[in-house]
Simulated assay, not measured.
Amino acid sequence: MKILVSGGGTGGHIYPAIALIRHLINQDESVECLYIGTENGLESDIVPKEGIPLKTVKISGFKRKVSIENVKTVFRFFNAVSKSKKYIKEFQPDVVIGTGGYVCGPVVYAAAKQNIPTIIHEQNSVPGLTNKFLAKYVTKVAISFPDAASFFPKEKVVMTGNPRASEVVKGDYSKNKNRLIELGLDPTKKTVLVVGGSRGAKPINDAIMSTHDQWKDKDYQCLYVTGDAHYEKVKEQFDLQENDVKNLVYVPYIHDMPAVLNEVDLIVARAGATTLAEITALGLPSILIPSPYVTNNHQEKNARSLEKESAAKVILEKESSPEKLMEEIDLILNNEQTWLSMKKGALRLGKPDASENLERLIYDAIKGGKK
C-alpha cells in the first residue's frame, strides 16, 4: 500500500500524522509513505528525522482582512495544486490523508479531483478553515472529538480519535520505569505535572512561581515543566527563595513525555488536541487553562468537551490565579472520589485504539474507492 500524508504548520497536525505512519509501517513493512509539507513549517525538520520522504509546496493561509496577500494566496493555492498533482502522479498513492494545516488543502484537493480515496483527520473540537473546505471533496472525515461532527457532512464522519493516543498507551516504557526517580521525585507520592507546552505558558508559570512555598506542606508533589523560553527566569526566581522545596522539581523540557504521563496523577496544561488525546487515553484527570490566542478559540472548546464528561476542570486564563490553581489541585488530589470520577470521565473520551480505527478507515476507503 502507498499512502501520501500531508499536514503541517504546528506539531498538533504533524505528530498525529507521524504516529499513524509509524503504526501502518509496524503493521506492514511493505507500506510506502510520502509526506508533503512546506519548507518553512515544522514538518520540514520533524519529518525527515523520522526517515519519511518529504516533498514540499509553497502555500499560505488567508488573512482575516481583505488584502492583496489573499489574492496571492489564491495563486499559491493553484500552483500548489499543480505541484501536488505532479507528486501524486509520480508516487501513485492508494490513499491520501490530510491532518490539517494550510498545506494539506491543495494536496488533498488535488487527490480528490483525481478520484483518489481521500481522508482528512480533524484533531480539534472545532475544525480549521482547511478541513472545512476539504470536507465536501473527501471520501471520509475522521474526528477526535464528538463535538466536531456537526461541522461536517454526517455521512462522511467517523469517530476515530487521535493516533497520538495509541502511542502513549501502547508505547514501550520498560526503559523509562521510575522516570520520576530520575527527575528527583518520590514515586510513592501523588504527582501533579504542570506543563505549558514546549515553550511554556507565562500565566501558568506565574501561578506556579507564586506558590513556591506552599508545596513544602503538601502530601503530593509537583513536576513543573517551565518550557525552554522561561527556564532561566524561573531558576533565577527560585534561587532567591530561602528554602529549597523538595516537593517541587522544575525542568525546562521533557523529551519522553509519554513515559512521564504514565506515572503522574494529575496534569495542569493548555488544551491542545494532542495533549488531550494523550491524557484521555490514559484516563489522566486534568486542570486545563486554554490558550485564548488560538484560532476560533478552539482550545477552550476542546477543554469544555472534557469538562462535560467531568474529566477536567477548566480555568480560563483571565480567571486564573495562584490561589485558584492550588485550590483546584487540592480538591482533586485530596479527594479520592473526585479523582476517580475524573479518571473515568477521561477514559470515556479516550481513544487508545485511534491508530487501528484510522487504519480500518484507510482500507475501507481504498476498497470502496471514491464516494
Rank of each mutant, 00 (worst) to 15 (best):
V5S: 02
V5D: 00
V5M: 13
G8T: 02
R22E: 15
L24Q: 05
G37V: 05
L54C: 14
I59C: 05
F62K: 08
S67T: 11
E69Y: 08
N70D: 02
T73C: 09
F78D: 04
I88A: 05
E90C: 09
P93K: 04
D94V: 04
G100V: 08
V103L: 00
C104S: 14
G105H: 11
V107E: 13
V108S: 07
K113A: 13
Q114F: 06
I119V: 10
L129Y: 07
K132H: 15
L134P: 12
T139I: 12
V141D: 08
A142I: 03
A148V: 01
A149M: 06
F152Q: 10
K154E: 09
K156W: 08
K156P: 07
M159D: 11
M159C: 09
M159T: 10
N162G: 08
K177C: 01
K190G: 05
V194D: 03
V195Y: 04
D213L: 02
Q214A: 05
C222Y: 06
V225Q: 13
D228Q: 12
K235G: 04
N243G: 13
K246N: 11
N247L: 09
Y253T: 04
D256A: 06
V264A: 08
A273D: 11
T274S: 14
I279T: 13
I279A: 04
T280R: 06
T280D: 03
G283W: 01
L284M: 10
I287S: 06
T295S: 14
H298C: 01
H298R: 01
S305H: 11
S310H: 10
L316V: 06
L316N: 12
P322Q: 00
E323M: 09
D330N: 14
I332F: 11
L333M: 07
N335K: 04
Q337I: 07
Q337P: 08
G345C: 14
A346Q: 06
L347P: 02
